[in-house]
Amino acid sequence: MKILVCISKTPDTTAKIAFTDNNTKFDTNGVQWIINPYDEWYCLVRAIELKEKDASTVIHLVTVAEADADPIIRKALALGGDEAIRINTGSNDGYYIASQIAEWAKQGNYDLIFTGKETIDYNGSSVGGMVAELLDLPFVSLATKFELSGSKATITREIEGGEEACEVDLPLVVSCQAGVAEPRIPNMRGIMAARTKPLKVVDPVATEALTGYVSFELPPAKAGVKLVPADQPEELVRLLHEEAKAF
């Protein structure tokens, strides 16, 4: 069993969001970088759990990023990957990133490719589906449970207002969210072992970005809260009905 876990470097969930260069670039000043939570908490941890059940499982991590992503790759390796591949290029276009991952995956013969349901910076939720299409593989998105028995995966995925359970033969691409696994923290042994695990740096293949970020905007500030006394909820109902026209 060979698993490819796609990971991405994102700002910490508490990072202050600001922009520079006339609102054309994300202001990275003072930003702490983390592994995209969906990639770490669910994809990577589930892959590690599968390896704990079947020791012959090999976990590769892949990221499309420049050298400043190395610290988060080492952290991922400390949690449990066997080997990491960094495709040495920076981009925020989903197709460009997916093309790089698909090219790598073609030569890797992976049985299973995990991606997070989205990254918490650009919220594209598109790389997993694109990788699946470029490799002509089935894609199950927004998984909340993932079980494996031989070469058959049983997956529960989110649908509007409910859940759907399905069976698919490997190989396939799955995007994961809460429910697939519980977050872990790396232990000292893992951190030590990560130092000597291979981190391969490979050159990107020639492809193009189909979209480009032109500018960013912060939401307009709220006018301020209108407080209603706790013993007058009917006044709140009146405001919501007549002023806000919320119902």
Binding site: G94, Y95, A98, G128, E133, L210, T211
Partner: peptide
Amino acid sequence: SNNVNGKSIAPRVSARLKAGLVSG
């Protein structure tokens, strides 16, 4: 729609047709 199904289909159509996708 960028709903549950849209999130799984739109990226595939984008890669298939090599058509730029804006999701969300």
